[in-house]
Nucleic acid binder design. Sequence first.
DNA 1: GTTGGCGTATTTTTT
DNA 2: ATACGCCAAC
Length: 792
Amino acid sequence: MKQYSLLPALDAQPELNTADILSGLNEAQQEAAAAADGPVLIIAGPGSGKTRTLTHRIAYLLASGKARPHQILAITFTNKAAREMRHRVYELIGDQSKGMTIGTFHSTFARLLRKEGKQIGYTSDFSIYDSDDTKRALRQLLNEYNIDPKQFSPRSMYSLISGAKNRLIGASEYARLAVGPAQEKAAKVYGPYQDLLRASNAMDFDDLLLKPIELFRNHPETLERYRFLWQYIHIDEYQDTNHAQYILAKLLSDGHHNLCVVGDDAQSIYAFRGADIGNILSFQRDYPEARTVRLEQNYRSSKAIVALADAIIKGNSKQIEKELWTENDQGDPIIVMEALSERDEAQKIERRVRDLCLRHGIRYRDIAVLYRTNAQSRSIEESLRREDVPYRIVGGVSFYQRKEIKDAISYMRLVVNPYDDGSLRRVINYPTRGIGNKSQDLLFQWAKGAGVTAWEALERVSEVPGLSSRARNAMARFRTMMDGFMGKAETEPAGDLMRSILNEAGLTHELMREHTPENLVRRENLEELVSAVREFSDNPDTPDTLSAFLQEVSLLTDADSGGDFDDKVTLMTMHASKGLEYKAVFVTGLEEGLFPLSGAMQDPEELEEERRLFYVGATRAERYLYLTYARSRYRYGEHQSGIRSRFLDELSGDLLRTEAGEPFSSKQDRLQRSSGSGNYTEMDPFYYRRPLGGTKGPSEKGRTHNTKPPAARRQGTAPGPSKAEPAGRRIVYDAEESADLAAGMRVEHGTFGEGKIIAIEGNGPQAKAVVFFKEVGEKKLMLRFAHLQRIG
DNA sequence: GTTGGCGTATTTTTT
DNA sequence: ATACGCCAAC
């Protein structure tokens, strides 16, 4: 597994002096790179070379003799970024860079806890629970406390607890602060949840940050050691740090204050998982002596794209003032593409992709298609696959999240950490070996009463009352088998152990029972896992233990996986695209309710975050940028028509072009549509039969420029206009009930008062409107009964 | 104890 | 539309 090699094999570089290291940087970058001592705040716009500045700064510190490699701590946002930074510093100064600590917050402190955790009662073999494991544990607890997991899902409980944890609010304090039913329930399970983790010698993602804080606070001498060790601290993507990370940075840099943070408040997109934009906004206040450097020159994008980015972010009220500029060419115009449906959108993208390759000499790997939600990848995939355009998806389920891999990993975890009840539960009856839920419950309950872990209970299975002899035997056999694995772990290489587990626990066999292509893939994945384990333990750069391997892989993201250098189009969420750049970028699904997402539309803060996400997406592009939206989209299994995103309408028309090359006139277009002939959906079988009534919107005009006929017609789902079929009844409904209502309109309701239509769903007598009412919030109403009156 | 069917909620984004 | 949890039958 390549991502574990600490240092890539590179030819030694000729010696460089410090001036050489700075020479490739512009003035502002040089200032930031050479400001060795004291706090530094680098405010860096997109494409301004902030990572480059950071690497050169580190190289400069080392080459100038200011710092020894082990005194450098650099925190990156992803493991991949860490790898790249290590690589780049090595390229600059060669062997002088060996021994730096570069990694994400989570991996860095996981490593630290492996060394120091025993001071707070953890062995170095602790398990790391990902959100999957965590939800499993919470489901268990919700059950125990008779909380209905349907009403209060493990997922929502986890996000509440997680939110509390990364604000450093403990269980008892949270219980005091909790308001409302959900928080009260979360408060109930918070404490037991922590106890459960503790007893299992396990930590969740939040603990990886909290435990070091706890450790440092309880053991000042340890903190002192690390303060002394890491003399120069760097944090990238500082705008996305949460409170716990903020505290860690503060603790570690107290005393020397050699803390250099880099970020862009306009690119803060992780508030939903606790990131606190206040960290970067108040850096200057926390460290009054801090030097602030702005990197405002953009090297990535064309003038057109930089201007667009500027216009996007102007829609937000709060931000650090800065002015992006570029010396690059004006570049091509940014094109807005309207599609009838998501399918149509996907086809248009696919055609553009091929056009870019054929006519503009762009390679597939220089193209990215970005979307708001993972679910949107599907239609785009289909359309690319149909035309044999190679693509890769980043995100979704990463290798180590796949079920078969997690099963195997759970066995390994249990081998190194027998206290891990979560993993035990996961594997005790997979593959099925006659230990059903009931027997499991008996075992776990007895263990709880006796105050021992389930693993110990397994040893004393004869004492557990109520078990059938069959279950008892099965448990004993399981225990014996695991004992065997644990013995092997002492003597055999990790890869061999993994292989034995796959064979003897029956994991491979389980996947041979049915000969489906999926199972074949799963078996191949398991094989890959074996070689990953082998590589890890064979790698002299990672002389660590098996538990280290298990811990590191639970922190890997799909985006971290080693470079795929094939020539493929990249599909990913805008979140995943952070920090990347492509010659051509498609930002898709620009529709109200999708982007911005409906949940965010009512909260100004969240809306601003969505807008920053748009900013991030658009600024990934170097030269070609396409913004697309569809007028209808599948959601919840039915077609819903939507309206174009407000983000598009906020932009002035001269920045954008339609596909036909005309200026994109934003405002009027949207208004006219909502007042007139709009609200069609592609799949609406009556689309082409509807009396147009003379209201020919600009959208009609757009269609005449389309070289291909609309997708719906070509697929034959909608008969042509010539075939005026009966089925008139539904048209009547349509005309009576909904023809004059469309998303975007202001309406009045007898009881709910004034509101705005967010979307119209379905047609005929089933037509519903999603309306956001000023007084009561979002409601879904049947048009037949609602009697909405248009106002305004 | 296991399997299958049915009903239900579910869609943000992720270290 | 799909996935997952729960319940009933084997």
